[in-house]
C-alpha cells in the first residue's frame, strides 16, 4: 500500500492562469516596447527620408557629442537633486506640524493632501498664469508689498526659469512627502520621546536622535519613487517653458520628445529616451545597494 503525499492539485496552473493576462499586458506593452526602442535607437528610422539601415551606436554618440544634450542631462540632474532636496525639507516640516496636536488638525491634513491630486498639466498651466510676465499674480503680490517695481520675467531668464519650474513642481508633490513622512511619524512610539525627555533631551535633540533615524527607511522609499519621477520630468516643462528660454529648461525628456515628435527623427529620440532609462537603472541600482546595506547593516 502506498501513501500518497497530498500535493495541492493545480496550484501552479492556477497561479499561471491568474497572472497570465496581467503579464501578457505587461510584457507586450512594457518589455516589448523597450526592446523595440533599443532596436529603433540603433537603426535609422527617419520619416523625413534618409536611407534606413543599421546605425550602431551612432545615434548615441551623436547625442552625447551635442553640447545642448549634455546641458539637458545637467538640467535633468539639477531638477532632480534640487526639487527632491527642497521637497524633502518642506515635506518633513509639514509632517512635523501635522503630527502636533491642534484644533482643526484633521481638516488641515485633508487639505494639505489636495495639491497631490492636481493633474500635472493643470498645475503647470496654473503656475504659468501665476508667473505671467505682464499680469502674473506673483509679480502683483511682490509689487504690492513693495519688493519689486515692475513685473518680473520669471520664465524668460534661464537660471530663474528652472527654479520656477521646480517651485511649481514642489507645490504639487510636497504633499506626497508630507503624507508619507506623517505615516512614518505616527509609527514612532510615544514612549521613546517620553523616555528621552526624562533623560533630559530637549525637543531639538529628541528630533535629531529619535525622529530622523526612525524616518530613514520611509525617506529612502520616498527618495526612490521621487527620483524615478523627477528624472522623467516632461509635462511641466511642456506647458511652462517648452524647454526655453534659450534651452534653459531643456531636460532629457524634452530632448527625446523634440527629436521624435517635432523633428520626426525617431531613432535619435529613442536613443535619448534610452539614455534616461540607463540613467534610471544606474540610480535604481545605487539605491538598491544602499537599501540592502541599511536593511542588513551587519553585512
Amino acid at each position: 500500500m502506498t501513501i500518497r503525499v497530498h500535493r495541492e492539485p493545480g496550484v501552479e496552473t492556477l497561479a499561471w492562469a491568474l497572472i497570465a493576462p496581467a503579464m501578457t499586458v505587461v510584457l507586450g506593452l512594457g518589455l516589448y516596447p523597450l526592446l523595440y526602442s533599443l532596436w529603433i535607437s540603433v537603426e535609422r528610422v527617419d520619416l523625413l527620408g534618409g536611407a534606413p539601415g543599421f546605425a550602431g551606436l551612432a545615434n548615441y554618440t551623436l547625442l552625447l557629442g551635442d553640447p545642448l544634450v549634455l546641458l539637458a542631462i545637467w538640467h535633468t540632474l539639477y531638477f532632480t537633486v534640487v526639487s527632491i532636496s527642497v521637497q524633502s525639507v518642506l515635506g518633513l516640516g509639514i509632517a512635523l506640524v501635522l503630527n502636533e496636536r491642534f484644533l482643526g488638525r484633521g481638516i488641515l491634513r485633508a487639505l494639505v493632501f489636495l495639491p497631490w491630486a492636481m493633474p500635472t498639466v493643470a498645475n503647470a498651466a496654473l503656475w504659468s498664469w501665476i508667473y505671467h510676465p505682464s499680469f502674473g499674480v506673483l509679480s502683483t503680490v511682490l509689487y504690492k508689498l513693495g519688493l519689486v517695481s515692475a513685473p518680473v520675467q520669471w520664465l524668460a531668464t534661464p537660471y530663474l526659469a528652472m527654479n520656477m519650474v521646480i517651485l511649481a513642481d514642489t507645490w504639487k508633490v510636497t504633499p506626497f512627502y508630507a503624507i508619507m513622512f506623517l505615516a512614518a511619524l505616527q509609527g514612532i512610539p510615544e514612549e521613546l520621546y517620553e523616555a528621552a525627555a526624562i533623560d533630559g533631551a530637549g525637543p531639538f535633540r529628541r528630533c535629531l536622535a529619535i525622529t530622523l533615524p526612525l524616518l530613514a527607511p520611509m525617506f529612502l522609499v520616498v527618495l526612490v519613487v521621487r527620483t524615478m519621477e523627477a528624472l522623467r520630468v516632461f509635462d511641466v516643462i511642456y506647458v511652462l517653458t517648452g524647454g526655453g528660454p534659450g534651452g534653459g529648461t531643456t531636460v532629457l525628456g524634452w530632448v527625446a520628445y523634440l527629436q521624435a515628435f517635432q523633428n520626426l527623427d525617431f531613432s535619435v529620440g529613442a536613443a535619448a529616451a534610452n539614455l534616461m532609462v540607463i540613467g534610471s537603472l544606474i540610480i535604481a541600482w545605487c539605491y538598491a545597494r544602499v537599501l540592502r546595506r541599511s536593511a542588513f547593516p551587519e553585512n
Binding site: A22, M23, V26, L27, L29, G30, L31, Y32, P33, L34, Y36, S37, I40, M228, L231, R232, F234, G253, A256, Y257, A260, F266, G269, A270, A273, N274, M276, V277, S280, A284
Partner: peptide
Amino acid sequence: LLAICIQMLPPIATVIPL
C-alpha cells in the same frame, strides 16, 4: 521583479515604440 522594473520605465521611453 521584471514587472516592477518595467513599471519604472518612463513613459517617454516607451511612447515612441508604442
